[in-house]
């Protein structure tokens, strides 16, 4: 078997050594069934142990290994080398985020946003566990299920130019998650969440570029969640204006 190879051009940045990121090239063996992450692991294990990146489950569900692959945000565990051959592959940290090192981005800002939208079931009155589950029909489950598939991989933030320009924008994943709880038949907290997501830095920042939904590896549709929230807010306001007594 002749050893076929493929070139990976990887962004390197170590604060202690480098003033700015630069590109380092690596030759890795080409395998039909390798993903970009396998190639990175090959670099780390065999060629250069100093390369840093996040990864874990290598089956597209933990959300750690999002990077830019040839300019597109991708989960590197499901981006196959064969789809980029025979060209070279450019691997960069996710766009729009500060870079801690090499391919590792700072996601602490996202964690704050996630907390700010209160992504948990809010009830006026909790039902004791001894009284059993809240009934929820398959249709009621279906209403929010799609929005519950987010793995927080941040590809959507990387694809969103609004977030790139306005880093305070709460952004696609966090808003979609808030919407997921709003739609949950067990939840009674949408007004509390909407106070946050329809405030400054919330849904109005979005101008519907729509790329967040295009790049989502789990087929969540954050763009739809955001637009629907806008419509709901406006119709709620109109209702409140026409029928003031219906307001809380």
């Amino acid at each position: 078997m002749s050893e076929e190879t493929i070139t990976l051009n990887v962004t390197r940045y170590r604060h202690e050594k480098d003033r700015a990121p630069f590109i380092q090239s690596y030759q890795v063996p080409y395998r039909e069934d390798w993903v970009v992450l396998d190639a990175l692991n090959h670099i780390k294990d065999e060629l250069d142990g100093t390369l840093s990146y996040r990864w874990s489950c290598r089956m597209g569900v933990c959300g750690s290994c999002g990077m830019m692959v040839n300019g597109e945000p991708k989960l590197t565990c499901s981006a196959f080398l064969r789809d980029y051959r025979p060209g070279e592959i450019r691997v960069e940290p996710l766009e729009n985020f500060p870079v801690i090192r090499d391919l590792v981005i700072d996601m602490s800002g996202f964690m704050d946003k996630l907390t700010s939208v209160q992504p948990w079931i809010i009830r006026e009155k909790e039902k004791p566990v001894s009284e059993g589950e809240y009934l929820q029909t398959p249709d009621q489950l279906d209403a929010y299920q799609q929005y519950s598939q987010c793995i927080n991989c941040l590809l959507c933030y990387s694809a969103c130019p609004i977030f790139g320009l306005e880093t305070d924008f709460i952004g696609p994943a966090a808003i979609a998650l808030a919407y997921r709880y709003n739609l949950d038949s067990r939840d009674e907290g949408s007004h509390r969440r909407n106070d946050v997501i329809t405030d400054v830095n919330g849904v109005w920042e979005c101008t519907f570029v729509g790329e967040c939904s295009v790049v989502c590896p789990k087929h969540v549709d954050p763009a739809a969640a955001i637009q629907k929230l806008k419509v709901e807010t406006v119709s709620g306001m109109v209702r409140g204006f026409l029928m003031p007594w219906s307001r809380k």
């Binding site: 329809t198 405030d199 109005w204 806008k230 807010t233 406006v234 306001m237």
Partner: peptide
Amino acid sequence: ISFAPLWWG
């Protein structure tokens, strides 16, 4: 009061 919803509507 935020006017954002009005403008967006």
